[in-house]
Nucleic acid binder design. Structure first.
Lengths: 367, 367
DNA sequence: TTGTAAGCGTTATCAG
DNA sequence: CTGATAACGCTTACAA
């Protein structure tokens, strides 16, 4: 009765161990032993079983297997939004490692909604996953409780005690700011991410530190808080460009916000880097192919995924070490969104310069 | 023995229906009936059961459920490479629909390798998925056999008889070419995708047709075959730029190749759109924020995912109509990578013009 | 309306 | 070394 609609879709009788056992003329237990190598089996029988498996194209049912073992070969992965261009490479890194070790990935998007995160977490549990990989949502409240091993990536939820893999946000931002300073800028603004996110916080701190080390003070208005998306990058930049004096350089805490900043700059009829320099964080390869290639702190997303997946797998296979925090190095990639600035009193001194084709043209024009 | 390493990770005794039954003082069958509404249950008992479920935080085990029903709430999704920036929005569209209907997504990357595709297909089967959503690999040999419902997206494998959701590749390319022609170009080249891919083939055909309709002949050398990635876009463009006469406009069959084309153009010390116009296909939002926003045929990736997921769900719930082919409309988004071209004999006539800030500057300079 | 029990496909224990 | 069998957690037919 409740069955009527279902016959339609039921897979047409998959091959089971029983059929393998039957065609190989052995018992079902023996088949299992052959497959899992749990007990040794006489070579002759082994071959018969293997043959039957090949002939019938048998694939063990992962559900019954998982049910029995109380654990599947599924890795649950939770990301804020696969549509954010930084995450796909992370996911890909995870998937590659998972695949090599014959784990499969269930992917969930939380939209940075802690509610949705919890809900996903719960129903991932009901698949008895081997482990969980989580890029926490903005206000995430997860904790490592009991349950399958979990590793957090990219961001660290408040109060999180478990394993973590992140990039060197503080140091990366520090280098970025130092580069801007070295290029002669003094009026330097930052568009940070949401500060409840550890990575956003660390980037802001690294930035501040570099300015402090160079004895440059920061006008509080030069610190704008964005949300890691284009719209907020745009809005923050509009506010910055209206300031007097206007900053000569902006550090955007991710590429999406830098792209938004670029739109604002264009809308103000200014050009980057001639009128305003921009350095961003992420270094998505897509930002290097536009006419104006962004100078950026590159973070190795794919490696981030691989590393986290490896750590998780080691936990899955019983690694009981205390929780680790792995920090991946970033790299400042100098392209052409930063121009050298020569303050009046320094004219004539040699200062490193970087220009793109266009700014060169304009200088010729002025000459 | 084989157990020693496993206790480590076993989830600490999840709550089961038995415990719910026990604490609610009913039988296990009744609990099931409450949860699934399969049989009506006296209100008082119902409340007791619901209470117990809430209190203990019970989540039904999806494995045993799936095992029993011979079908899970998993949707398997196979994509060539989540790292290709067109796919994340498709995946996201799928995931949103799946989530709303309480299905979960297992994601697999084939790297356009038909081998890997088959292997994934097989082991997705062993999870008894409710359905499969597939963006076929380049040489895909899949067929709709028996098994759970399958829907193909974006590309149609050769000989595929099942459901399909694609965008209007032919028409989109036709419009793109028409736009280029309308802007006065006659020497128009195309960088196509791999032609075993239906979408690549259709785009090429649409392009050819537009030129034929305008009585413009195509130098065979103006037709370059890329692989939908940046590197091939770059290589094809290098070949095109060396041609004499050089094309004045290029239609790139996707954004990634257009980005590669842009690099090549820059390397030849040419500028787009002044020296060469470019139109591409995809319209990823990331291409509109660079200084040079790409004029492109926008394809609705997110909608593609949603539509395919909806179709799949309808199949899952028993829709037995003959296989459908759904074609989603594209939209030409005119930005500023195409300049109007005035052939000598037309100087003085009015021709629609589009320029970006830079080309305007250069004209001032010349004046 | 409710309880009981069979069975989904595995793995693992225990006899033989 | 091999075969029979219990158990994993759930749904559902059937009996009460």
């Amino acid at each position: 009765m409740a069955n009527n609609g279902k016959n339609t879709n039921s897979t047409p009788a998959r091959i089971t161990m029983h059929q393998i056992a039957e065609t190989a003329g052995v018992s079902i237990g023996t088949v299992s032993n052959v497959i899992n190598g749990s007990l040794s089996v006489r070579e002759k029988l082994r071959q018969r079983v293997l043959g039957a498996i090949r002939n019938l194209g048998y694939q063990p049912n992962q559900l019954s297997r998982g049910l029995r073992l109380n654990r599947t070969n599924i890795i649950g992965m939770i990301v804020p939004d696969i549509t954010n261009p930084f995450f796909p490479s992370v996911v890909r890194g995870v998937e590659d490692i998972a695949y090599e070790n014959s784990y499969r990935l269930i992917l969930c998007n939380t939209d940075d909604d802690p509610q949705k995160e919890i809900s996903y977490l719960n129903d991932l549990w009901s698949f008895l996953p081997a482990g969980l990989l989580i890029i926490p949502a903005v206000g995430s409240t997860i904790s490592s409780n009991s349950g399958p091993p979990m590793v957090c990536l990219d961001r660290v939820p408040e109060g999180w005690k478990g394993d973590v893999v992140v990039v060197a946000n503080y140091k990366g931002a520090y280098e970025a700011a130092k580069h801007i300073i070295r290029m002669g800028h003094r009026r330097i603004a930052i568009i940070s991410g949401p500060l409840h996110l550890t990575n956003a916080g660390d980037r802001l701190e690294g930035f501040r530190r570099a300015l402090r080390d160079a004895r440059i003070s920061i006008d509080p208005e030069y610190v704008q808080k964005g949300r890691f998306d284009r719209a907020s990058g745009y809005a923050c930049t509009v506010r910055l460009l209206r300031l007097v004096p206007r900053p000569t350089a902006i550090f955007a805490a991710n590429d999406l916000m830098a792209l938004g900043a670029l739109s604002a700059v264009r809308e103000f009829k200014l050009t980057c880097p001639d009128d305003i320099s921009i350095v961003s964080f992420d270094g998505l390869d897509i930002t290097e192919f536009s006419d104006l290639a962004l100078t950026a702190v590159y973070q190795p997303g794919y490696q981030l995924g691989r590393t986290a997946a490896r750590l998780l797998l080691s936990r899955i296979s019983g690694n009981e070490e205390p929780a680790r925090k792995i920090v991946l190095a970033t790299e400042l990639k100098i392209r052409n969104s930063v121009a050298a600035l020569r303050p009046r009193h320094q004219r004539g001194k040699s200062v490193p310069r970087r220009q793109n084709a266009r700014s060169r043209k304009r200088h010729i024009l002025r000459a």
